[in-house]
């Protein structure tokens, strides 16, 4: 009885590992969604009222960005520093794109140039995100199924 309980717990734990790895991917994807929302929000604020960046960052709120400290870094030190603080949570290609955007933002004399910059990076990042989402969907399925299979295998081996 004890043995069977132990086997069930062990195989459940192994399956849960797979689910955990899958949820980490979901978390990172959700954070990237917050970043993308920030990008769109910046464009909207520039198009409507040409708000300065510090006011835009002050008004922006997202629970996911708040939790990992990104919002605090954004308001204190600007977008470039905030991105550096969350570098590990982003795929390299997407990180490079956001960093390049942050380094170019706010330098033009014209609102129309800034808006065009935001629009350009929105398109580029959207394209990259599509590719990553497809790859991540496959990875998540793999982790979940692998977790369950390994759990079952462990159970079979121990029986």
């Amino acid at each position: 009885m004890l043995k069977i309980t132990g086997i069930i717990l062990l195989s459940s734990a192994i399956s849960a590992c797979g689910a955990y790895m899958s949820s980490k991917i979901t978390q990172k994807r959700n954070f990237r969604k917050s970043l993308f929302e920030l990008l769109i929000y910046v464009k909207v604020c520039i198009d409507n009222g040409a708000l300065p960046l510090d006011r835009i960052y002050e008004n922006f709120y997202d629970v996911r960005a708040e939790k990992n400290g990104f919002l605090r870094a954004l308001r204190q030190s600007g977008l470039e520093c905030a991105l550096i603080s969350v570098k590990d949570e982003l795929p390299d290609e997407i990180y490079e794109l956001y960093l390049s955007f942050a380094q170019s933002l706010g330098k033009s004399l014209y609102t129309s140039s800034e808006s065009a910059l935001c629009a350009r990076y929105t398109e580029l990042i959207k394209e990259k995100e599509k590719n990553y989402e497809q790859k991540e969907a496959v990875k998540q399925l793999l982790f979940k199924r692998l977790g369950i299979l390994c759990g079952l295998l462990a159970a079979l081996l121990l029986i």
Binding site: I46, D54, K107
Partner: peptide, 16 residues
Amino acid sequence: LRDFCAGSVYAYESTI
């Protein structure tokens, strides 16, 4: 100018 405008030079387009 960038530092003076807190990194948002475009926000002062109308006065510039």
